[in-house]
């Protein structure tokens, strides 16, 4: 009788994993290029999710059908979030490239600042979520929220696109060159500052897209980003900081522990198991599963 539960747990792992993948991609990209840990990544996610919950009903009230309203809202939200990201980069982070401590504190301060701002602007109450793709679908006789299927599909497409652009486009190649050795890259005429800005903005856009995708199924409050941040960190560090395939592997690793542990042992123990297992993995592979020595 393992089959039904087994299939169910596989599907849950994929659901959870795709959420963490979406959240982690930006984190790992930022680390790869700038060698800093962005403590405010969750705030980009949160602001985007909140804006979507405001814009979709607004556009729907002006006669737009749900799907076009959602796409327009997402596009607007991503644009706004990227603009905020540009400001953060231009007036702050640019001074702390490759400065782990300085960037960490700056983003920590920004996270607190924006938590306070969001709380006073949007209030602390959970925001009503728009229904984009309603209902459930059955996969191998297991009921799954349709929106989760969308998130999974988007996670696959986005990671695919990111992986392709990192290997096949000029920008991607330059970013990878910076990530592996920024001095050598600069000697070859790659403009480090401009490219790390582009990398940061891409990461911000990824956080915003993740927020827009999660808005219909996650909770939407100013504090939501902080909740995802810890597991995002764990996924990225287990996979190997700066590695896109690593982020996917790390996210799946954590998702499987959360699903299997949560089902068989209980949610509280599963959360602790994540932290313990992350430490164990790093002891065996000090640079994560796919990190380069």
């Amino acid at each position: 009788m393992m089959s039904a539960t087994f299939v169910q747990l596989v599907i849950i792992s994929l659901e959870i994993g795709s959420v963490y993948v979406l959240f982690s991609l930006g984190l790992t990209l930022i680390f790869g290029i700038m060698k800093v840990v962005n403590f405010a990544h969750g705030q980009f996610f949160a602001v985007s999710a909140i804006l979507v919950t405001i814009l979709v009903p607004f556009l729907a009230a002006h006669g737009l059908p749900v799907l076009p309203a959602y796409f327009l809202a997402t596009a607007t939200t991503v644009a706004v979030t990227v603009m905020i990201g540009w400001g953060v980069y231009q007036f702050g982070l640019v001074r702390f490239l490759r400065d782990m401590e300085g960037a960490f504190i700056l983003t920590l301060g920004l996270a607190m600042l924006s938590d306070g701002l969001m709380l006073s602007i949007f209030g602390g109450a959970p925001r009503p979520e728009p229904v984009i793709v309603p209902g459930t679908v059955r996969i191998f006789a297991v009921a799954v929220l349709a929106q989760h299927v969308v998130v999974f599909g988007a996670a696959v497409c986005i990671t695919g696109a990111l992986y392709w652009s990192m290997t096949a486009t000029r920008l991607g190649k330059a970013l990878r060159a910076i990530a592996s050795d920024h001095e050598a890259a600069m000697l070859q005429g790659i403009p480090y500052r401009r490219l790390s800005r582009d990398g940061f903005l891409i990461a911000t856009a990824l956080a915003a897209i993740a927020g827009a995708l999660m808005a219909p199924i996650s909770e939407v409050t100013p504090a939501v980003g902080n909740d995802y941040l810890m597991n995002g960190f764990m996924a990225v560090v287990v996979g190997g900081l700066g590695s896109v395939p690593g982020a996917i592997l790390g996210a799946m690793f954590i998702a499987v522990i959360e699903a299997v542990g949560g089902y068989y042992v209980g949610p509280s123990a599963a959360t602790m198991a994540i932290f313990v297992m992350v430490i164990v993995v790093l002891l065996i592979r000090p640079r994560g599963l796919l990190g380069r020595a």
């Binding site: 169910q8 747990l9 849950i12 659901e15 959870i16 959420v19 996650s218 939501v224 902080n226 909740d227 995802y228 810890m230 597991n231 998702a255 959360e258 699903a259 299997v260 542990g261 949560g262 089902y263 068989y264 209980g266 949610p267 509280s268 599963a270 959360t271 602790m272």
Partner: peptide, 16 residues
């Protein structure tokens, strides 16, 4: 059962 504050995904808990 108990779950930790800050948990974002509840499918395994719901299944249990």
């Amino acid at each position: 059962m108990f779950y930790e504050r800050g948990t974002t995904e509840f499918q395994p808990t719901a299944l249990r």
